[in-house]
Amino acid sequence: MGELIPLLKTETYIKKSQMCLKRIREADLVIMDDLMAMDQHEANLLFHLINHLYEKTSIILTSNKDPEEWGRLLGDQGIAMAILDWFLHRSEVIQFQGESHRLKYRETLFDSKTVQN
């Protein structure tokens, strides 16, 4: 997501962004990792991309936020509900509970002594 939003914002005037988004729009599978906070304009751009991909492309979206929080995350409750409607139609939702999988394997990093200790 951190790379997708800048591509969407610059598509109208940067050729590289246009080419990258063309590949995304023609892909069989698009993976959007870690839905993040964005302003209403960015959410609108994402909305239009998902609208284009809907029923043409398989999409995997990861988020550490519950769907109830998406309105605040995307800066627009209406856009969030439309995106969720598309994602939940003919989809499989997988929820993970517990600690971060990324940090689980890095516990030794936080247990080690630092120069200040």
Rank of each mutant, 00 (worst) to 15 (best):
H52K: 05
E68Y: 09
L84D: 02
K16S: 12
Q97E: 14
G75T: 06
H41S: 10
D66R: 07
T62W: 04
G78N: 09
L29F: 14
G98R: 06
H101R: 13
M19F: 05
Y13R: 08
S100W: 01
L61H: 02
T62K: 05
E42H: 07
Q77W: 02
G75A: 09
E107W: 04
R90N: 14
K22F: 06
R25W: 08
Q18Y: 13
L46Y: 01
A27H: 03
M38T: 10
N44P: 01
M81W: 01
Q40S: 13
L61G: 03
K65H: 13
L53D: 01
W86L: 10
T108K: 15
I79V: 15
I31A: 06
T57I: 09
S58C: 13
M81K: 11
G98W: 00
R72K: 12
G78R: 11
R23C: 05
L74R: 00
C20L: 12
I31M: 14
E55A: 07
M32V: 15
Y105Q: 11
L53C: 05
E92H: 14
S17D: 07
A82G: 04
L73Y: 02
W86V: 02
H52E: 12
R72D: 11
Q18V: 04
M36I: 08
Q95R: 14
S17N: 06
M19H: 12
R25N: 11
Y13V: 10
E26D: 13
N64K: 13
I94L: 14
D33M: 04
E69I: 08
Y54R: 01
V30G: 02
S100Y: 00
I14T: 08
